[in-house]
Design a protein around this nucleic acid. Structure first.
Lengths: 160, 160
DNA sequence: TCAAACCCTAACGTTGACGTTAAGGTTAAG
DNA sequence: CTTAACCTTAACGTCAACGTTAGGGTTTGA
């Protein structure tokens, strides 16, 4: 049973990426065709497919292309297999830390937005009043609340 | 009591940004000096300082410069004050939604990383063995586990 | 009045992960 | 044998938010 090869277009379709992306990864030394045709067409084996899926998974875990490049070269530089595993663990731990930091940053964002929205809710009664000059609640927003809204200058015209 | 003005450098220092950044914001129509000196130096009033803090806060909430541009122009296009408030709320709600989506994406990342690390832990016993050829646990990682590790080809040499 | 410190505009550079022509060669089907 | 569909390399384009020269003018304090 002979090995099955894919052209770049066929492989691209299989992994849901463009041919440009596959060539780009090759430039970055992340993949390489098993061989070429006489005319120079890239021919990939199943290994490349696996490798591409692996790259995608690492990207999904937040690793950049450069991270993956470093990862590959560093691990292959380490000769002692158990040391490889230790290094891999360290890289994952570091990534996990960064992901968690990003999460807490976003949770801060979330809180700010929710607080601002809660503040804006007190203005919503206003919207049901056709004559907004009679709207008092907007006028009663304090300086401190304005700051909370993060839109002081936009509120300024409303606040007179 | 006359108004106090700041040069671009003084204002930049106050808000912890570079002069380039302030000029960049001006290009984007986000701020503008109150006036200029004879020689063309920008002179800013206290308003610009407030506005810059506001911009920073919006950025901290995840709005891009372009978002802020749109935000400003859209809100100023709306004439009816209560409608302004409604629009502001909508923009905040949309942003909150995006932030929350981002958070759940990152929580997925976190889970993937933690699962992979848990898997790698089973290899850590190995590292305390000097003769790694005697290490069995690495050899016993199943195909399914390999996939979970997201590093099948890096493990390949370890697995023989 | 003179020099250090500051400011001006204009415009090209940076980073990441590809997208998009341009100009042509190769393959496979009919 | 032709031709549509596919492939090749090379190289410039994209977006965000500024950074970084380059080549000058302006202020201000001694």
């Amino acid at each position: 049973m002979s090995i099955e090869y894919f052209t770049i277009g066929a492989l691209a379709k299989k992994v849901g990426k463009t041919t440009r992306t596959l060539r780009f990864y090759e430039e970055k030394s992340l993949i390489e065709p098993a061989k070429r045709t006489q005319g120079g067409y890239r021919l990939y084996s199943h290994d490349s497919l696996v490798r591409l899926q692996w790259i995608e998974q690492l990207q999904d875990m937040g690793f950049s292309i450069k991270d993956i490049q470093n990862f590959v070269s560093q691990v292959s530089d380490i000769k002692h297999p158990p040391s490889k595993m230790v290094h891999i663990s360290q890289v994952y731990v570091q990534r996990l830390k960064e992901t968690q930091e990003e999460i807490s940053r976003l949770r801060e964002q979330e809180k700010e937005l929710q607080a601002s929205l809660a503040m804006l809710d007190s203005c919503q009664t206003c919207t049901s009043i056709s004559d907004h000059t009679a709207c008092r609640s907007c006028m009663e927003i304090t300086k401190k609340q304005q700051n909370r809204l993060k839109i002081p200058d936009l509120l300024q015209p409303l606040l007179g």
